[in-house]
Simulated scan of single mutants.
Amino acid sequence: MACCSDDACASTAAPAEGRYRTVLWTVLAINAAMFAVELAAGLAAGSAALQADALDFFADAANYGISLAVLGAALRFRARAALVKGVSMGLFGLWVVGTVVWNSLTGTVPGWATMGGVGLVALAANAACLALLYAWRSGDANMRSVWICSRNDVAANCAVLAAAAGVFGTGAGWPDLAVAAIMAGLALQGSATVIRQAMGELRSDRQGQGPVPVLR
């Protein structure tokens, strides 16, 4: 098996890390832009599913941003940043749940054309992120988690498109509400996991222990 000296390995790893950082900044910009677009479109069209998908873009943008901001920082700073992310995700998830309840009570039928059009744009954006991250799909745990997250986002976009087709075919709002409820539930579950992990790391840091195991 080939090996290299520390200096040689460092010189080889540095450009790769730099490229990965650049890719993270790029996918962060894409996700932040799509969060704003989908949120505005979801509110305008009365679509809870688009708002839920906007939540997904928000969570990804926050994940990339926090990863870049606290890269190499002490455990307590990373844990605090993750705690802020978890709470934000939870609040946004509750907002989507409230939208689902409100739309179900008022009988809102979202604009399927807006849902479909913006859903296609979102799918293209996530496909671009997936292509950018493809080279790091088999990297370390952090790199692989980013790849898997982006891969799952494509499935969420397809769910939004299915909801748009359902609204078009039935003339009712329940397909939109069903997809939004599922996505909001997953977001709340993810929020709870992040918060528990962050709280555990903060306790571990105060006690002078190492990082706690990742919660599933």
Rank of each mutant, 00 (worst) to 15 (best):
residue 206 R to S: 10
residue 14 A to D: 09
residue 168 F to P: 02
residue 153 D to R: 14
residue 82 A to Y: 08
residue 138 S to P: 03
residue 143 M to N: 11
residue 49 A to E: 05
residue 166 G to W: 00
residue 143 M to A: 06
residue 84 V to I: 09
residue 132 L to E: 08
residue 193 T to F: 06
residue 3 C to L: 14
residue 184 A to K: 05
residue 74 A to H: 13
residue 199 M to P: 03
residue 68 L to Q: 08
residue 170 T to R: 06
residue 114 T to P: 06
residue 127 A to V: 01
residue 15 P to C: 04
residue 167 V to P: 01
residue 189 Q to T: 11
residue 187 A to H: 01
residue 112 W to A: 12
residue 61 A to V: 07
residue 185 G to W: 02
residue 55 L to E: 05
residue 194 V to P: 01
residue 28 L to G: 02
residue 152 N to V: 12
residue 24 L to Q: 08
residue 42 G to Q: 02
residue 151 R to V: 09
residue 41 A to F: 04
residue 196 R to I: 04
residue 86 G to T: 02
residue 33 A to M: 03
residue 66 I to Y: 04
residue 201 E to S: 08
residue 56 D to H: 14
residue 164 A to Q: 00
residue 16 A to T: 09
residue 100 V to C: 07
residue 38 E to R: 12
residue 193 T to E: 03
residue 100 V to P: 00
residue 208 G to T: 05
residue 208 G to L: 02
residue 30 I to L: 05
residue 52 A to M: 01
residue 189 Q to M: 13
residue 152 N to T: 11
residue 131 A to I: 15
residue 2 A to C: 05
residue 82 A to Q: 04
residue 13 A to G: 03
residue 69 A to Y: 04
residue 169 G to L: 15
residue 3 C to I: 07
residue 76 R to L: 15
residue 162 A to Y: 03
residue 46 G to Y: 11
residue 73 A to I: 06
residue 179 V to Q: 02
residue 174 W to H: 14
residue 47 S to A: 11
residue 74 A to V: 13
residue 35 F to M: 03
residue 15 P to T: 05
residue 212 V to K: 13
residue 89 M to L: 05
residue 135 A to G: 11
residue 185 G to H: 08
residue 96 V to H: 01
residue 46 G to M: 06
residue 173 G to K: 02
residue 52 A to K: 02
residue 182 I to V: 13
residue 54 A to S: 09
residue 12 T to E: 09
residue 48 A to G: 06
residue 58 F to C: 09
residue 76 R to Y: 13
residue 129 C to Q: 15
residue 133 L to I: 10
residue 202 L to K: 09
residue 29 A to G: 04
residue 199 M to K: 12
residue 130 L to K: 02
residue 26 T to S: 13
residue 98 G to F: 05
residue 140 D to W: 00
residue 177 L to P: 02
residue 76 R to E: 11
residue 68 L to A: 02
residue 37 V to T: 15
residue 131 A to N: 07
residue 26 T to M: 10
residue 149 C to M: 15
residue 200 G to P: 01
residue 10 A to E: 13
residue 7 D to Q: 06
residue 200 G to A: 06
residue 187 A to R: 09
residue 190 G to F: 00
residue 186 L to S: 04
residue 6 D to K: 14
residue 169 G to D: 11
residue 204 S to E: 06
residue 2 A to V: 14
residue 105 L to W: 15
residue 122 A to K: 00
residue 21 R to K: 14
residue 184 A to S: 00
residue 88 S to L: 11
residue 216 R to Y: 12
residue 215 L to S: 08
residue 47 S to P: 00
residue 50 L to I: 02
residue 24 L to G: 04
residue 115 M to N: 01
residue 93 G to L: 05
residue 208 G to N: 07
residue 113 A to K: 12
